[in-house]
Nucleic acid binder design. Structure first.
Lengths: 139, 139
DNA sequence: CTGTATCCTAGCAGATACTG
DNA sequence: CAGTATCTGCTAGGATACAG
């Protein structure tokens, strides 16, 4: 696997920029692998919640509003499997388990910020577009 | 809604950075809305494919390997509804329809690049983590 | 406290056939 | 060419109950 690695431009503003990128060999398609992990309903919230330090199972359950015990367990297991969360068990009675975001997961933060930023700038536009579209369908 | 908008740091490298960000009011959780649109199996590929200029239905069908006609239509409709693709119908016989990414969609490129970049740097690590995890389960 | 185990449902997605 | 219609399976995710 060749290490073709140029600096990533700050932002795309025109179709010409897009062309240039594609010609330069950029394939801006994140692997399914990543979209599947962070695309889940709770994954990102869990990463964020455990980014500041160890969090216990019940803490997370209380913090993440609306999550079921089942999905909490499932998502934690997936994230642990992918190396995004570290799980630590203290063999006490009652049991104590802590989850903490790994450095790799913290770096995902940046990507989240870019997405969030995009959404902040365009959510109104998306909403308007949807209204228009739905109105056109109704007519 | 207050416009609390500071420059976004290039990358997070430590928990302290994460702390600082959260304290600064950043909520790095992209709305479900965005993850639901781009999280789909074909959405990103379609945006990329139509980023360089107008693309016809059949062109896309040939280009995107493995997509069914049904999913192509469905995803195109969703993206059009969200204002990420512009659909143009030429009332000719036979009919001709073109799809083209909007400027808003082109900006999503940047976010894709960041995600792809993260994945490029860490996919090996994720794969190893999974192997380890699965091996531990087997034992 | 930290989970499993079951059952259930809605929606994503594939396959196939039909149409203006 | 550019779709729609229908049937079907699969999996994410919720509700609830149980367990070490």
């Amino acid at each position: 696997m060749s290490q073709r690695h140029t600096a990533v431009p700050a932002e795309l503003r025109s179709r010409a920029d897009a062309d240039a990128l594609i010609d330069a060999g950029y394939c801006p398609i994140p692997p399914r692998e990543i979209l599947d992990t962070i695309g889940g309903k709770w994954a990102i919230q869990l990463i964020v919640a455990s980014a500041r330090g160890p969090m216990r199972f019940t803490e997370l359950e209380r913090l993440i509003e609306g999550i079921s015990r089942r999905m909490l367990t499932l998502t934690l297991r997936h994230l642990e499997r992918d190396g995004l969360l570290k799980r630590t068990v203290y063999p006490t009675v009652p049991p104590k388990v802590e989850y903490e975001a790994t450095p790799m997961a913290l770096e995902l933060y940046e990507a989240m910020l870019v997405l969030t930023n995009w959404s902040r700038r365009h959510s109104a536009c998306v909403a308007r577009s949807r209204e228009d579209y739905d109105a056109r369908q109704a007519s």
